[in-house]
């Protein structure tokens, strides 16, 4: 029974409450880092890591912090986790650091993380909170990877650096800024259609 509930929480984040296509949260990294499928995936995984640990820590300390100052406490927890992540990425994956740039410290102000802390981790125990973090984080990751793959394919004819058609047939527009808005708009329309069917 408990296991079933956790699986339900996990799947909820993947589809029904997908942060990108349904809740429309965390739009800055969604648009800013998806110029290729790989960059989108790295951004999603970085957010996933912060989200799982922030959900875990906040669900453990929720009874220790007074209600009035809970939001600043959550922000300190999240900002500390992001700083740790930023140092790890700088040390072990400088390529990822160069590709994502400013968007790594900006995970702090990603509304998904604070939103899940307030809506889920502050009301539930440690184990369901981890599953919620995993579900929402993976939902965010697959959405970013899909958006990145569409943009990369339309713009350069490649997906994950594997050539699908010659590069000169690609429309560079989709790798540049306007492509991010347009591709996401159409993906949301498709997602709405699937959800209704």
């Amino acid at each position: 029974m408990i296991i079933m509930n956790n699986i339900k929480v996990f799947l909820n984040g993947l589809f029904k409450e997908n942060p990108t296509f349904v809740l429309l949260l965390g739009m800055c990294p969604t648009l800013g880092t998806t110029s290729s499928a790989l960059n989108g995936m790295f951004m999603g995984l970085a957010t996933l890591a912060v989200l799982v640990f922030s959900n875990l820590i906040i669900s453990l300390i929720k009874n220790l912090i007074p209600d009035q100052v809970r939001i600043p406490c959550y922000i300190v927890v999240i900002a500390s986790l992001v700083t740790i992540l930023q140092m790890l990425i700088k040390a072990y994956a400088p390529g990822v650091d160069a590709a994502l740039g400013l968007f790594i410290p900006l995970i702090v102000v990603n509304c998904i993380i604070l939103g899940r802390a307030e809506a889920f981790a502050a009301k539930n125990g440690a184990i369901p909170s981890i599953f919620d973090g995993l579900g929402i984080g993976l939902g965010f990751t697959w959405a970013l990877t899909l958006l990145g793959a569409c943009r990369e394919l339309l713009g350069t004819g490649k997906v994950f650096n594997i050539t699908c058609f010659p590069e000169q047939y690609g429309a560079l527009l989709f790798v540049l800024a306007p492509g991010a808005f347009i591709v996401l708009g159409y993906l949301i329309a498709v997602f709405n259609k699937i959800k209704k069917a």
Binding site: L24, A177, G179, G185, Y186, I188, V190, N192, K193
Partner: peptide, 16 residues
């Protein structure tokens, strides 16, 4: 299908 956020994002793309 395009109502709401979908059309708004396409408009933002054109503005960009």
């Amino acid at each position: 299908g395009m109502q709401g956020m979908a059309i708004a994002l396409v408009v933002a793309g054109l503005l960009s």
